[in-house]
Amino acid sequence: IINNLKLIREKKKISQSELAALLEVSRQTINGIEKNKYNPSLQLALKIAYYLNTPLEDIFQW
Protein backbone atom coordinates (compact mmCIF):
# COMPACT_ATOMS: atom_id res chain seq x y z
CA ILE A 1 0.00 0.00 0.00
CA ILE A 2 1.30 3.43 -0.94
CA ASN A 3 0.31 5.84 1.78
CA ASN A 4 0.26 9.63 1.30
CA LEU A 5 -1.54 10.39 4.55
CA LYS A 6 1.28 12.32 6.23
CA LEU A 7 1.97 14.46 3.15
CA ILE A 8 -1.71 15.34 2.66
CA ARG A 9 -2.33 15.92 6.38
CA GLU A 10 0.66 18.27 6.62
CA LYS A 11 -0.39 20.16 3.46
CA LYS A 12 -3.75 20.80 5.10
CA LYS A 13 -2.00 21.89 8.31
CA ILE A 14 -3.75 19.31 10.48
CA SER A 15 -1.83 17.68 13.33
CA GLN A 16 -1.95 13.98 14.07
CA SER A 17 -3.80 14.79 17.29
CA GLU A 18 -6.41 16.91 15.49
CA LEU A 19 -7.06 14.24 12.88
CA ALA A 20 -7.22 11.54 15.54
CA ALA A 21 -9.82 13.53 17.47
CA LEU A 22 -11.96 13.99 14.34
CA LEU A 23 -11.77 10.26 13.60
CA GLU A 24 -12.21 9.20 17.23
CA VAL A 25 -9.00 7.17 17.22
CA SER A 26 -5.71 7.61 19.07
CA ARG A 27 -2.84 9.72 17.79
CA GLN A 28 -0.80 6.50 17.85
CA THR A 29 -3.22 5.00 15.32
CA ILE A 30 -2.63 7.90 12.94
CA ASN A 31 1.12 7.61 13.50
CA GLY A 32 1.00 3.87 12.80
CA ILE A 33 -0.94 4.39 9.57
CA GLU A 34 1.51 7.07 8.40
CA LYS A 35 4.48 4.79 9.10
CA ASN A 36 2.81 1.83 7.33
CA LYS A 37 2.80 -0.15 10.58
CA TYR A 38 -0.99 -0.32 10.60
CA ASN A 39 -3.44 -0.67 7.72
CA PRO A 40 -6.71 1.12 8.38
CA SER A 41 -10.02 -0.62 7.92
CA LEU A 42 -12.01 0.44 4.88
CA GLN A 43 -14.37 2.35 7.18
CA LEU A 44 -11.49 4.27 8.78
CA ALA A 45 -9.86 4.94 5.39
CA LEU A 46 -13.15 6.39 4.11
CA LYS A 47 -13.45 8.60 7.20
CA ILE A 48 -9.89 9.85 6.69
CA ALA A 49 -10.70 10.74 3.07
CA TYR A 50 -13.89 12.49 4.15
CA TYR A 51 -12.26 14.62 6.87
CA LEU A 52 -9.29 15.51 4.65
CA ASN A 53 -11.68 16.26 1.77
CA THR A 54 -9.42 14.19 -0.48
CA PRO A 55 -10.24 11.23 -2.74
CA LEU A 56 -9.43 7.92 -1.06
CA GLU A 57 -7.23 6.86 -4.00
CA ASP A 58 -5.07 9.98 -3.50
CA ILE A 59 -4.36 8.98 0.10
CA PHE A 60 -4.01 5.21 -0.22
CA GLN A 61 -3.00 3.29 -3.32
CA TRP A 62 -3.24 -0.47 -3.43
Rank of each mutant, 00 (worst) to 15 (best):
I1E: 07
I1C: 15
I1A: 08
I1T: 10
I2G: 10
I2K: 14
I2H: 13
I2T: 14
I2Q: 12
I2R: 11
I2A: 10
N3G: 03
N3S: 05
N3K: 02
N3M: 04
N3L: 03
N4L: 05
N4S: 06
N4C: 08
N4I: 06
N4T: 05
N4M: 06
L5H: 01
L5Q: 02
L5Y: 00
K6C: 07
K6F: 06
K6S: 08
K6I: 05
K6P: 04
K6T: 08
L7M: 13
L7P: 09
L7N: 14
L7E: 15
I8P: 01
I8W: 06
I8V: 12
I8Y: 09
R9K: 01
R9V: 02
R9W: 04
R9A: 02
R9D: 02
R9H: 01
E10H: 08
E10Q: 07
E10Y: 04
E10W: 06
K11N: 11
K11F: 08
K11L: 11
K11Y: 09
K12P: 01
K12T: 07
K12R: 10
K12S: 10
K12F: 05
K12D: 03
K12E: 07
K13C: 12
K13N: 14
K13P: 04
K13L: 10
K13Y: 09
I14F: 09
I14V: 10
I14W: 05
S15A: 08
S15G: 07
S15P: 05
Q16F: 02
S17A: 14
S17T: 10
S17W: 11
E18W: 07
E18A: 12
E18S: 10
E18D: 11
L19M: 05
L19S: 00
L19D: 00
L19V: 02
L19H: 02
L19N: 00
L19C: 04
A20L: 02
A20K: 02
A20S: 08
A20E: 01
A21V: 09
A21N: 12
A21K: 14
A21L: 12
A21H: 12
A21R: 14
A21S: 10
L22S: 09
L22E: 07
L22N: 08
L22H: 14
L22G: 13
L23P: 00
L23G: 03
L23T: 11
L23H: 00
L23C: 15
L23K: 00
L23A: 12
E24C: 14
E24I: 06
E24M: 12
E24W: 07
E24R: 12
E24Q: 14
S26P: 15
S26W: 04
S26H: 08
S26G: 08
R27K: 13
R27H: 10
R27E: 15
R27L: 15
R27P: 15
Q28G: 14
Q28F: 08
T29L: 15
T29S: 08
T29M: 14
T29H: 10
T29N: 04
I30F: 03
I30D: 00
I30L: 13
I30C: 03
I30V: 11
N31V: 14
N31H: 13
N31W: 08
N31Q: 12
N31T: 08
G32P: 01
G32I: 11
G32L: 15
G32W: 14
G32H: 14
G32A: 15
I33N: 00
I33T: 02
I33E: 01
E34M: 03
E34Q: 02
E34I: 03
E34N: 02
E34S: 00
E34G: 05
K35Q: 15
K35P: 03
K35F: 06
K35H: 13
N36E: 07
N36Q: 11
N36C: 10
K37R: 13
K37H: 14
K37Q: 14
Y38G: 06
Y38Q: 09
Y38D: 05
N39P: 14
N39R: 15
N39E: 14
N39V: 15
P40S: 03
P40G: 04
P40F: 05
S41C: 06
S41P: 11
S41K: 06
S41H: 06
S41W: 06
S41F: 04
S41R: 07
S41G: 09
L42S: 05
L42N: 05
Q43S: 10
Q43F: 10
Q43P: 11
Q43A: 15
L44H: 03
L44V: 06
L44I: 08
L44Q: 06
L44M: 08
A45Y: 03
A45C: 11
A45W: 09
A45D: 00
A45H: 02
A45G: 06
A45V: 05
A45Q: 10
L46V: 09
L46W: 07
L46K: 11
L46M: 15
L46T: 09
L46Y: 09
K47E: 07
K47V: 04
K47F: 04
K47A: 11
K47S: 06
I48S: 01
I48R: 00
I48T: 03
A49D: 01
A49G: 06
A49M: 02
A49Q: 03
A49L: 02
A49E: 03
Y50E: 09
Y50V: 07
Y50W: 09
Y50G: 06
Y50C: 11
Y50F: 14
Y50K: 10
Y50N: 06
Y50I: 07
Y51K: 06
Y51F: 13
Y51V: 15
Y51W: 08
L52E: 00
L52H: 00
L52M: 08
L52Q: 00
L52D: 00
L52V: 03
N53G: 12
N53K: 11
N53A: 11
N53C: 10
N53E: 15
N53Q: 14
T54F: 05
T54S: 08
T54L: 05
T54H: 05
T54Y: 06
P55W: 04
P55N: 07
P55K: 10
P55D: 08
P55M: 07
P55I: 04
L56C: 07
L56I: 13
L56T: 04
L56H: 03
L56S: 03
L56P: 05
E57K: 11
E57Y: 10
E57D: 12
E57P: 05
E57F: 07
E57S: 12
E57Q: 10
E57N: 11
D58T: 11
D58S: 08
D58L: 12
D58R: 07
I59D: 01
I59L: 11
I59A: 01
F60Y: 04
F60I: 02
F60G: 00
Q61H: 13
Q61T: 09
Q61W: 11
W62M: 13
W62S: 10
W62T: 11
W62N: 07
W62A: 08
W62F: 13
W62I: 12
W62E: 08
